[in-house]
Design a protein around this nucleic acid. Structure first.
Lengths: 108, 108
DNA sequence: AAAACATATCGTCATATCGCGAAATGTCAA
DNA sequence: TTGACATTTCGCGATATGACGATATGTTTT
């Protein structure tokens, strides 16, 4: 409940941000993943194969990048038959942005 | 003035985010730079040498990482005699977070 | 101008990440 | 359970990043 970021004093300032927020930053700090992110424009839901095709990357690459993005909380996945459909994670993003903002509040 | 992110429709959705926001994400997506960031806790102003010492890294490394962070808009630098003092960039961070939020609004 | 000092840049190496094809895993249909 | 198909995992080469020491640049003082 008590985040390492809130109410910090000089003595117990966090040295790194929490893993979830770090994963969020990594999930977006790559041109390829940014391109993938924009495929989920307007709530679109896409399979791994569709992402691979539209992003112009191999199928295994798409799978790996989507796993990272899922870990970063920017997309969610659900199985639909033999296909897995991904879409933007509105709530995950909202939370990550809030955490990031709280983290940065400490120093600036 | 018209950001590539705002008012996007399905036809002209941005494929990557603007360079400034990308640099912002990169500036924070590294444990070392996160550690450095937290040194600027509570508006502290530190020289390159002080950052190197407190972060436990070499002087050249500190200089290079601070350059990245400056490009990402998370710190500012000013010369003070023969020393250069860095501190958290409140306004740069605020702007970057707003841009990031706008970018993510598109898809989620 | 030269000495002293802080920072920036350069060259190099170690490690991490990216992207791929191949193989393994998992799921539905017959 | 076998076959067909989608996704994940694995192994690998290419490229990017991180950190360092050495050197260059810039600033102040003498």
């Amino acid at each position: 409940m008590a985040e390492p970021v809130t109410m910090a004093t000089d003595a117990d300032a966090p040295v790194v941000l929490n893993p979830a927020t770090h994963d969020f930053l990594k999930a977006l700090a790559s041109p390829t993943r940014q391109r993938i992110m924009m495929l989920f424009f307007n709530g679109a839901e896409l399979s791994v194969g569709e992402v691979a095709e539209r992003a112009g990357i191999g199928q295994s690459t798409a799978s790996e990048q989507l796993t990272l993005m899922r870990r970063g909380g920017v997309v969610t996945a659900r199985r639909d038959g033999k296909v897995i459909r991904y879409r933007g994670d509105r709530e995950g993003i909202r939370k990550a942005l809030a955490d990031l903002q709280a983290y940065l509040e400490v120093c600036c």
